[in-house]
Design a protein around this nucleic acid. Structure first.
Lengths: 151, 151
DNA sequence: GTTGAAACTTATTAAAC
DNA sequence: GTTTAATAAGTTTCAAC
């Protein structure tokens, strides 16, 4: 990938934009100690080089009806390509699955699952996740609180 | 918490803002089939009621020099308020900690940690995380691939 | 890198329907 | 909820330093 060099000013810009993606260029320039023109140039460059991938609203999951958020650790039985492929395709298609990570360790995939309530989650597990090929073991942790997020 | 009722239009607004947090009110209104005035009113209401928690730039972790991403499961020794409080304060202040979740199960907190390389991660663990009060046990999983993200 | 100014696009508010 | 109009504010582009 292209790896543009980021100087300290770029990093400060990214820092500010990460916590306030809707700040005006004037305020941003003032915060990072730059005049508006070069500040806008830098932001545009960061966007064009893919350092900034986009902007998004941080939405309260509970308000969206995602009252129940869990982390599901999944272990696949056999690591054969066909099963993995089908598992990944299914996971990508499931709207409840908010995130899916391939990790090392004694488990294979970590899923983040959001559902309106426990009943929906039950259906998701029994009717869908557990029926996927290769899924041998799953452990679930209920998320009680999001203490921090910088993403 | 206050749970305002979200009608379909609100949900469409949230949907658009989630993927494009910098869209102008005019474009947003057009996308959700509303005129600009009530659209702006709804967005403002969503912000004030806490449904929209803020806006942020999505930044390429690799560009930031976060080549190594891990998931750290942390277990605290004693669950006394003072320790928990200090632990949380420290975690919030650590820039390497990208996410922190309080969960149920045989562990207490799940952290997402990003570092430039393995050496930095080593320093983070030995000099900082392990020295926090109450941290008894940590297990670490290296993230090999982000298969899916909807957040 | 800086400032300054003009042209263009939005946001915001108010009014009337 | 809608449209329209006016003011204020922000963005972008350009020139000159």
């Amino acid at each position: 990938m292209t790896t543009p060099t980021l100087d300290p000013t770029d990093r400060r810009i990214l820092d500010v934009l990460q916590s306030d993606g809707r700040i005006s260029n004037l305020d941003l320039a003032a915060k990072v100690g730059l005049s508006p023109t070069p500040c806008a140039r830098r932001v545009r460059r960061l966007e064009e080089t893919g350092v900034i991938r986009g902007y998004g609203a941080r939405i309260n999951p509970a308000a969206l009806g995602h009252g129940v958020n869990v982390i599901v650790s999944v272990r696949l039985v056999r690591q054969n390509p066909r099963d993995i492929d089908e598992f990944l395709r299914a996971v990508k298609a499931m709207p409840e699955v908010t995130e899916c990570l391939l990790v090392t360790g004694d488990l294979d995939y970590i899923l983040r699952v959001a559902a309106p309530d426990v009943d929906s989650l039950k259906g998701f597990f029994l009717d869908r996740l557990k029926k996927l090929p290769g899924v041998s073991n799953t452990t679930t942790n209920l998320i009680l609180e999001t203490v921090k997020t910088t993403r």
